[in-house]
């Protein structure tokens, strides 16, 4: 599903964010990426939806070599990948429903199907009754649930999350991760970069640790620390 092969990333010719990282992720896996700040977690995630390309090495996602696909193929790749961020990235002037339906509209999905899917996914994150609320009227946790709904509305093969609970309190964070785990039960492959130690320790998923751009640990049913 995702295959990172000997990938290095150098920013601005000097900052080495990733150094010969290799990683293989199967369909339906739930993988935590951990490591200190600046270790290269976000960079690794960005490689997977082709926000960045490797300086050397290859990244295969859904059978495609991302350093070699054409620019105009990128949108079609992204339609099969959901992405969630620490800062939610919701549009302030759109309400909850519109923020989610937006992801289907930009690909010309028929109206009826949009309605069906958006209500489904808002139901999944438990916010169907708040569908008319604007981001400013929602709590951080609720906003992140909307963002997750947007990432899931296309029923993606892969869900990438970069510190999805970074701005949230522990209880709300747990809710978010429960939601992500539920998505993984539906068969979606998850890669989640996080600092949420307790949660990683509690969920006992595969843990990949980066240190200064190198992969130093890859453990099944791992913990945040050794």
């Amino acid at each position: 599903m995702i295959s990172v092969r000997n990938v290095s990333k150098v920013y601005n010719g000097s900052v080495k964010a990733l150094d010969s990282v290799s990683l293989h992720i199967e369909k339906g896996e739930f993988v935590f990426v951990v490591g200190a700040s600046g270790a290269g977690k976000s960079t690794l995630i960005k490689m997977m939806y082709r926000e960045e390309t490797p300086s050397s090495g290859q990244v295969f996602v859904l059978g495609k070599d991302l350093s070699r696909i054409r620019r105009r193929e990128v949108p079609y790749l992204r339609r099969r990948i959901g992405v969630v961020f620490q800062d939610f990235k919701l549009l302030e002037e759109k309400n909850a429903w519109e923020n989610v339906s937006f992801a289907l509209e930009v690909t010309g999905t028929p109206r009826r199907e949009i309605n069906r899917r958006v209500s489904q996914v808002l139901n999944l994150v438990g916010l169907l009754d708040r569908r008319d609320a604007f981001p400013s009227e929602l709590s951080g946790g609720e906003q992140q649930r909307i963002a997750i709904a947007r990432a899931l509305v296309r029923n993606p093969d892969i869900l990438l999350a970069d510190e999805p609970s970074g701005n949230l309190d522990p209880k709300t964070s747990m809710e978010i991760f429960n939601l992500l785990e539920r998505a993984s039960l539906y068969g979606t492959t998850l890669v989640v970069a996080t600092h949420a130690q307790d949660i990683v320790n509690k969920l006992r998923k595969r843990v990949v640790e980066l240190r200064d751009g190198t992969l130093v640990r890859d453990e099944r049913r791992g913990a945040y620390n050794y």
């Binding site: 949108p75 790749l77 990235k89 690909t107």
Partner: peptide, 8 residues
Amino acid sequence: IMKLVGAT
């Protein structure tokens, strides 16, 4: 965000 969710 449009590009992120796969707009051409």
